[in-house]
């Protein structure tokens, strides 16, 4: 081990102060939607990000995905001025958890797009449903099939599955490939 990574951890507080200022610039984009972060919100959000990274044993260099999450979710009908900061915090934690749960196989943009689609769609703004149902299913599909959607199951009756022919009599069932 080079020991250098441990030297960088002291940067956390300095990074947070600097990144909070950068995060507040997002208000220019989100203000038309009635959404804005205070400085305290931004610092809290960055601390949530740090904790989420630590809990999910990930390392991120730079401001990371917070801007992307804010940009993606600011136009959601289910996010308003009251719940904006808390929703972003929950989405941040969920995002890093899902990066591990999908085995790092989805790019950040694609994962955020899937989260937004489900949040606005079937979950109707419910973070519990998003985390506990839709994203669990999505992650399982990624791990099992390599895609966010499971492949469609065939609904052909048995014996007519297409690639083989089946003949049956009283004694024998013959499968011809």
């Amino acid at each position: 081990m080079s020991g250098l990574l441990s030297l960088l951890s002291r940067q956390d507080d300095a990074l947070i102060r600097r990144d909070a200022d950068e995060l507040l610039r997002l208000n220019d984009l989100t203000r038309p939607y009635g959404l804005s972060l205070t400085h305290e919100d931004a610092v809290a959000l960055l601390k949530v990000r740090t904790d989420a990274l630590k809990n999910s044993r990930r390392i991120e260099v730079g401001p990371g995905v917070l801007e992307k999450l804010a940009e993606a979710f600011c136009d959601s009908a289910y996010v308003d001025g009251q719940n904006y900061a808390d929703t972003l915090c929950a989405l941040t934690e969920l995002f890093y958890y899902l990066k591990n749960d999908t085995l790092d196989s989805l790019p950040d943009d694609e994962l955020i797009a899937v989260m937004k689609q489900c949040f606005d769609g079937d979950c109707e703004g419910s973070l519990e449903l998003l985390a506990g149902r839709d994203m669990e299913t999505m992650a399982r599909n990624v791990r099992a099939y390599g895609s966010v959607e499971a492949p469609l199951e065939t609904d052909k009756p048995a014996g007519e599955a297409g690639d083989y022919a089946v003949e049956e009599d009283e004694q024998w069932r013959t499968v011809r490939f």
């Binding site: 044993r57 990930r58 890093y96 990066k99 591990n100 790092d104 950040d108 943009d109």
Partner: peptide, 10 residues
């Protein structure tokens, strides 16, 4: 495509 990596990778 990703701004973060597992700690082991980092």
């Amino acid at each position: 495509e990703s701004s973060s990596v597992p700690a082991e990778t980092a």
